[in-house]
Design a protein around this nucleic acid. Sequence first.
DNA 1: ATCGAACCGGTACAGATGTACCTCTGTTTG
DNA 2: CAAACAGAGGTACATCTGTACCGGTTCGAT
Lengths: 210, 210
Amino acid sequence: MATTAARKPKPQPKLKTESPRPRGAARREALLEAVLKIVAEVGPDAVTHRRVAEVAELPLASTTYWFDSKEHLLTAALELAAERDTARLLQYGAEMEHSDIDPIDAVVGAIGECDDGSQPNRGSLIATFALLLEAARRPALRQIAQRWTEAYMLILSRLLERAGSATPREDAELLIGATDGLLLEQLAAGRNENLNPRLRRLAAALVAGS
Amino acid sequence: MATTAARKPKPQPKLKTESPRPRGAARREALLEAVLKIVAEVGPDAVTHRRVAEVAELPLASTTYWFDSKEHLLTAALELAAERDTARLLQYGAEMEHSDIDPIDAVVGAIGECDDGSQPNRGSLIATFALLLEAARRPALRQIAQRWTEAYMLILSRLLERAGSATPREDAELLIGATDGLLLEQLAAGRNENLNPRLRRLAAALVAGS
DNA sequence: ATCGAACCGGTACAGATGTACCTCTGTTTG
DNA sequence: CAAACAGAGGTACATCTGTACCGGTTCGAT
């Protein structure tokens, strides 16, 4: 069967979904998607050219074609993740702007939205923290991490102000910090509880004590 | 039959004059020290047998002699770091027990002690977080991380109780979380500010609002 | 002294990894 | 139509990695 003839008409009918195989610039995004998936499921040090290519179902060389180096690959992936989350957050902020939901609840919703107990989310959280940690070491990632945090500060401080906080920026900082820390602890301990009640109490205490 | 008890990798050290090259069980500790140093300065994925041996100024084979695998190496290192920090914390808690320092200040002192602006501390913090994150993936590390957090909860909740908190455990949880999160953000953003004022405000707000 | 276990350390090796070619395609342009 | 060109993809290679192997050394108990 192995027609080792010169011509191979490329009969690889892996037609399962409507996307046979991304081409052109779409590959770039597919590769970044794969990076995020790997970071989430295994960790940042498991990101190799070969694994990325495999997960993206693309040839190995495509990774070096679209990205100068592994470093570039990681940086672009973090950038993508941050951009997405920022966009989501901005939209949430805009929705809350003209809503009559209790401002404290709106605050909790902005940061606690994640912990819905779903398992895929857990992976995405690990990815986020892992990349944040990388930013502590790679200056290239710092700028991205900074902008990311800044977006949260912006939205949260506005919500807190409406909730009656006298020091919205400080309160926002503490709330974000507490959320990150609690999530990290849960991940490290393997627990998976709903943080919203705790965050709500914290937000209320901060607003009341300002 | 002389029951030459199967010597586990934890024999008694022959205390002697400090030699330029540690021998015996002292090597074990030197290797762990090297692991922590590498995790702090470069990251957990930079921990290789060769690098550990090089930093510890010991031959490569000593790493596989004292530790079954790289996994074992990392686990033992986290264990060491956790044990040390726990001991420090317990001592601090004991000191505060019979002290007339403002309980709120005592609380802040227990968790904010780290950020003295020193640079070596920054590295040790990165190491701590990196290893905590690893615990999210490796069950072997989870137990250690859990005991670690538990120690903090114990000390802090006792201090918070003395400070007048009606819900000391919940408050301790939030304080620890906030501390971790704020530190992580600072590391990711490359900043280095003193967190004590913020933590003090948080502790006061929690105690007042309980 | 001797004997065996614990310890030391050089080296080997198979596999993974980052990255550099190099050759093919299909499309666009002259 | 041919040349140019961006993309696609196979493969090679030097290096690094975890870990196994094995002969040498130290030392306490006999």
